[in-house]
């Protein structure tokens, strides 16, 4: 039994049962399409949370009585931390200037206020590659213990909420994926069962002339492989087209500029295609178990 004979029989079956094959491929494609959309949503949310968290950074407020000559050594200490990408020193006067700029026309409320009433601070930009909320919290706690530091601030609440939300989306994606996987497996298995049932007599005759199980099952497995491959590729192609469409909208829109939507990482794309193929092949093998008995 050569692979050439197996493939030739598979393609001949594909031609003869084109409609049933097309329906199975479409079911696989639709299931993967829904799952891939959720996955795309999840990865973009995760990407946003990571970016947002990294951009928020840390603000280290110093005590008012911190001597000016301690600033360079504190700066050195902060830049030496592996999680830190960039450190900017903001003096009390600079902070006051920012506040004035922020208040714009209402800056007169600051009249008579001492320009040094705001504490000096360091603005820390976190290394994106090393960004992890847990580590940032730990880092903030460590810096807070330094005697010159009065307070360390970062958007913990925001990041916490975003992380909870992204965790929720991840759970939804996982549950949806699992449900869709079962649905697709059920439909694929039953479509193949129907095909096998319709061709029961044919399979009986083929078995009678001395066909081995691989000769009988082989073409069905090749068809399943193609269905899984084509169904998932088609679905991912549609998702990619939608992604490019959103990218176009993002580039044109002032409001969305900088959102930087991302596509599903290639490792996951390969995993989705592989799972789809595996699902179809296993579903077929399972559906054919009965018809392979003598």
């Amino acid at each position: 039994m050569t692979l050439a004979i197996l493939c030739r029989r598979a393609f001949s079956d594909l031609r003869q049962n084109f409609c049933a094959q097309l329906i199975t491929t479409m079911v696989v494609s639709l299931s993967i399409l829904i799952f891939a959309f959720f996955t795309l949503l999840y990865f973009n949310l995760q990407h946003f949370v990571d970016r947002f968290g990294a951009e928020l950074g840390l603000v280290v407020f110093l005590s008012e009585d911190t001597p000016k000559d301690r600033i360079p050594s504190l700066y050195q200490k902060l830049t030496g931390l592996s999680e830190v990408e960039k450190v900017t020193y903001i003096s009390s006067e600079e902070a006051f200037g920012r506040l004035e700029k922020f208040l714009k026309d209402e800056k007169e409320v600051l009249e008579g206020v001492d320009p040094r009433f705001l504490p000096p601070s360091f603005e820390i930009q976190v290394n994106r590659a090393m960004f992890q909320l847990k580590r940032i919290k730990q880092l903030a706690g460590e810096i807070n213990k330094w005697p010159e530091v009065s307070k360390v601030q970062f958007g913990q609440e925001w990041i916490d909420r975003l992380y909870i939300f992204s965790g929720l989306v991840r759970t939804i994606v996982a549950i949806t994926g699992l449900l869709l996987l079962f649905t697709a497996a059920f439909v694929v298995t039953n479509t193949i069962k129907l095909t096998v049932y319709a061709r029961q007599e044919e399979l009986k005759i083929i078995r009678l002339v001395g066909a081995t199980n691989i000769f009988i099952q082989g073409p069905f497995l090749v068809e399943a492989f193609l269905q899984g491959l084509m169904g998932s590729s088609l679905a991912l192609g549609v998702v990619f087209a939608c992604f490019r469409f959103f990218q176009g909208i993002e580039a044109k829109s002032e409001l969305l500029r900088g959102v930087n939507i991302c596509f599903i990482p290639w490792q996951y794309t390969v995993a989705i295609i592989a799972s789809s193929v595996l699902l179809c092949v296993l579903g077929t093998a399972l559906a054919m178990r009965r018809s392979l008995r003598l």
Binding site: L208, G210, L294
Partner: peptide, 24 residues
């Protein structure tokens, strides 16, 4: 064994009353 049956069947030609031909 079940896996060996096809090889035995290749030594046997079977003819049926209802021909059992594949119509397609």
């Amino acid at each position: 064994s079940n896996a060996q049956v096809p090889y035995l069947r290749r030594k046997i030609g079977v003819i049926f009353q209802d021909f059992k031909l594949l119509s397609n």
